[in-house]
């Protein structure tokens, strides 16, 4: 096996060139100011990140991402339990059903929601046919959260399912033998054992949700700037690469901290990863 180590080098080189170097370039842009007088070290970009205007954007993005993650957890956990309780042949079919939407392009799926949600769209037509007032949630926070939950739900279901399906059934049987009600069994046995899956599910939903800019732009109608939109705007419109880099670095730090907290839980038990 040792002889084959060289085969990993392209991968290492690849990662270094396309992951590490770019991160350092971003870091570099965030701490220098480039003007006619040359290049100077500066913290002014980071100072701007902490202005209330931009902190509010951060808070808003985190808020929406947290709401979406919570909804994903509430929907995803029971779904994962149902999946894990089915026998093998049914289970595989159901998992395919969870995964199939992910084969389609993310943008195409979000555009599809636009036609569903819009005025006189499919959903409104159905709601009106039943005799209820139209929903009109297109271009609101509800639409943004809906888009996030829809797109990221599989990332919650799959890791939880993978842990639950590996749970030793005899542990649960032991609890039942000792007279625990199903509720107690769930609270004291099943849920604690599935925590690593829950944690990686939360990470895998929260990260893309907090950084998305497509969903908020398409379903939110650009009414609420999220952190992803703000960063994109700095690079493509304002040409303020320094400020954009500082925003990115600050977001990266936030994410690293939250991943650090998450990984603490994951280490305690194996098998939390997705697949």
């Amino acid at each position: 096996m040792k002889k084959r180590n060289w085969i990993a080098y392209p991968h290492i080189v690849w990662m270094a060139i396309f992951v590490l170097v770019p991160v350092f370039i971003v870091l570099y842009y965030s701490i220098v100011s480039i003007s006619d007088n040359g290049i100077q070290l500066t913290l002014k970009h980071f100072a701007r990140v902490f202005e209330p205007l931009y902190l509010n954007v951060f808070i808003r993005s985190i808020e929406l991402a947290l709401i979406s993650t919570a909804i994903c957890l509430l929907l995803g956990y029971p779904a994962a339990m149902i999946l894990a309780s089915k026998n093998l042949s049914k289970r595989n079919m159901l998992i395919v059903l969870v995964i199939i939407p992910m084969w389609m392009n993310f943008l195409a799926r979000t555009y599809a929601w636009m036609t569903l949600l819009e005025r006189n769209g499919l959903i409104d037509t159905i709601v009106k046919a039943i005799g209820l007032p139209p929903l009109n949630i297109m271009y609101t926070d509800y639409a943004v959260v809906l888009g996030m939950v829809y797109n990221f739900l599989p990332f919650m279901i799959l890791p939880i399912y993978s842990v639950l399906s590996k749970t030793n059934k005899s542990v649960i049987e032991a609890a039942e033998d000792l007279g625990a009600t199903p509720m107690v069994t769930f609270k004291r046995i099943v849920f604690p054992l599935s925590l690593p899956g829950v944690m990686s599910g939360i990470t895998m939903v929260f990260l893309p949700a907090v950084t998305t800019f497509v969903i908020s732009e398409l379903l939110g109608g650009g009414q609420y700037t999220l952190i992803g939109n703000l960063i994109q705007q700095q690079f493509t419109l304002t040409m303020d690469w320094g400020f954009g880099s500082a925003l990115s670095i600050f977001l990266m730090i936030l994410i690293l901290i939250s991943m650090g907290i998450m990984s603490k839980y994951e280490k305690e038990n194996e098998g939390g990863g997705l697949w």
């Binding site: 700037t225 304002t238 400020f243």
Partner: peptide, 14 residues
Amino acid sequence: SLPLYDKIWTEIKS
């Protein structure tokens, strides 16, 4: 003045 326009726009949209 480009950053000023950008700031105003962010304020409106947030």
